[in-house]
Amino acid sequence: MNQPLPPRRSWTTPVLLVLLLGLVVASFATLRLDLAAFFTPEAAGTTLEFLGGFTPPETAAPFLMKTLNAALETLSMSALGTLLAVIAGLVLALPASGRWGGAARALVRVVLNVLRSIPELVWAALLLVAAGLGPFAGTLALAAHTAGVLGRLFADALENAEPAPEAALRINGAPALAAFFYATLPQTLPQMLSYTLYRWENNIRAAAVLGVVGAGGLGQMLKYHLSLFQMQSAATVVLAMLLLVALVDAISYALRRALTR
């Protein structure tokens, strides 16, 4: 009886690990990091003095109301930006998944690569010229970057879906669009919703930072008070950011748990 041949050993993973390790070592060797400077008594004293300026946080009622309005603006930016990104990402995912041919797939994936390779801050800086200061530019910046991310994830989910159910409907005379909505989309919808909620978590953090370039919300308040060295007011804004992120993370986690049951 012939003995089964042993599986062929692949050298791809060890080579990639060695290259990655070499890149990490080269990074530490070229950046000239002075880690010892963080642990000197002077550095500790300066840090404590800087952090002491943030206490106690500003708790005046008018300022808290202003912070609440900015937090709601940040939340609105993240939610609307994510919603626009879901719509654009789903539209781009259809050709990017190869459903319209190889040429359309390659072209749309290039578009998705461009959208997600540009960070939200850069998108906001570019869109501020066209849309002006305020949350509108920040919302569009979140939507542009997130559309590239979700479009790629949605396309991969559609490509990995089981094709047999849709093919069975098409053989029995169902239109292409109906077969997609009744066979392929239900398979990928839980995964798409999970991706969407995860990106919403990321966007609430990004929306809080976009105000640094004038896109509104908590980030704009933080930049304003830090530039005037109003550290106690800045501390209140930072606490509002932390609470808002924690709230959105909890909501997203609960929704994702409900989807996976």
Rank of each mutant, 00 (worst) to 15 (best):
G45P: 00
K66G: 13
E162F: 06
R152M: 15
F136P: 00
L121G: 11
H225P: 00
G102P: 08
E73H: 05
A141H: 10
W100R: 13
E42T: 12
A161P: 03
I118R: 13
W100E: 12
V86A: 08
L247W: 08
E201L: 02
L127Y: 00
R8S: 14
V129A: 09
L222N: 06
R261L: 15
A207K: 09
P41M: 08
E159V: 02
V86W: 09
S76H: 08
M65I: 07
M192F: 05
V18D: 09
L158R: 02
S252W: 04
G89Y: 01
E201Y: 01
L197E: 02
L193C: 10
P41E: 08
Q232D: 05
F54G: 03
P57Y: 06
L242C: 14
G52D: 01
L228Y: 06
Y198L: 14
A250V: 03
W100N: 10
P186Q: 12
W200C: 06
A164W: 01
A131R: 03
A235K: 04
G45T: 06
A179R: 00
A96R: 11
E162Q: 15
L64Q: 14
N203Y: 00
L169W: 07
M221A: 01
G81W: 04
V237H: 05
L107P: 00
G53F: 00
N113H: 09
R116A: 09
A178G: 08
G22Q: 10
N202Y: 06
L158A: 06
L193Y: 03
K223G: 11
L17C: 09
A240G: 09
T55S: 12
A61I: 10
L107S: 10
W100P: 03
R8D: 10
A167K: 14
V18A: 15
W123H: 12
L239P: 00
R152C: 05
F181P: 03
A96K: 11
L80R: 05
L177Q: 07
P14D: 03
G102E: 15
V18L: 15
L115I: 04
L19C: 08
A36V: 00
G89Q: 05
A104S: 15
P56Q: 11
E42S: 12
Q3P: 10
R170L: 10
G151C: 04
R8H: 06
M65E: 13
L255I: 05
L17Q: 09
G101Q: 10
Q3Y: 10
Y224E: 14
L115N: 05
A26F: 08
A174L: 09
T260E: 15
L126F: 12
A215V: 03
G151L: 04
P163A: 01
T59V: 13
T47V: 09
N69I: 13
F154Q: 03
A178R: 13
